[in-house]
Design a protein around this nucleic acid. Structure first.
Ligand code: MN
Ligand code: MN
Ligand code: ZN
Ligand code: ZN
Lengths: 146, 146
DNA sequence: TAGGAAAACGCAAAAGTGTTGCGTTAATTA
DNA sequence: TAATTAACGCAACACTTTTGCGTTTTCCTA
């Protein structure tokens, strides 16, 4: 799509076919992606090292950001392209991790509010991780657990 | 120390010299520990597999809990031993990660409050990650960023 | 639009993190 | 003290991520 090429240009990333498709995938995906999931989405046709390097580049340029994951895997999700730029990531938002399907979702700003902070530390950014059962998993099964 | 042995007994963990010392280390440490840091603290005299297994055991028995880390390493910190027990971890508290020294600190409950949550997801647990400059790093240098 | 510079790519190898199997040693329980 | 159980060290393995290097593609500018 034209839009994706323009974005890559704007963020100073060469427009190779793979990187166009990768950005497109991030736009399509509502939950965060692991390297493995990306590899699968490309039918294992693309070298994993290429994926790693593209992700690192995207992250440095402010296109995507890492999201937390229970299994210590790196997951990535699209940044707000209006507020993020190279080396200036600005996402003070929460993430929701589903116990059941293991997906991680970005939550928009309005979902949660941090009330106050008081300690000797200077807070520059925050990330609230909520865990539980996502909308889909919740509606498709009954959970009886605390 | 006598106290540490008693705690190990109470949580059903054998009192080997290493595990006594490891618990002692967690009590001494104000920030979360990685396997590597523990290895160093024991002067590389203890096998890393032993550390991994002790950490897993401690976590399962409710002595320690994992804390988030920017680099996707596993870090561990002491639980509130009054509220945590085998398979019933109860720590809804925040963590602070320092941009500068990379340490992770547990924040006590009063430091931050979550105001509200509204989405289709069912929240069972949360973990707030604050990022910035810790007390020590802040006082020892001037930061000019954002 | 041709040609040189820079970025991205694939492949192989290495580094880093965490786990598993197994025989031995140490701690617990009776 | 003897039997049972847990912890330990070592080696090997699995998995994730990084690095080196030569080749290919994209970019930029003459
Ligand atoms: Mn996000
Ligand atoms: Mn904690
Ligand atoms: Zn789910
Ligand atoms: Zn610090």
């Amino acid at each position: 799509m034209k839009k994706h090429k323009e974005i890559l240009s704007r963020f100073g990333i060469n427009k190779t076919q793979f990187r166009i498709d990768l950005l497109s995938l991030f736009f399509d995906c509502k939950s965060a992606l692991t390297i493995h999931e990306i590899f699968e989405r490309f039918n294992k046709k693309i070298n994993k090292v290429t994926i790693y390097r593209a992700l690192k580049s995207f992250e440095q340029k402010g296109l995507i950001h890492q999201v937390p994951d229970k299994n210590n895997l790196k997951k990535y999700s699209l940044c707000n392209l209006d507020t993020c730029s190279p080396d200036l990531h600005n996402h003070q938002h929460g993430h929701f991790i589903c116990y059941s399907c293991d997906q991680t979702f970005c939550l928009d700003d309005s979902t949660v509010k941090i009330l106050k902070t008081s300690s000797g530390h200077i807070v520059k950014n925050y990330n609230l991780i909520l865990e539980g059962y996502c909308t889909d998993c919740n509606s498709s099964q009954t959970i009886s657990q605390n």
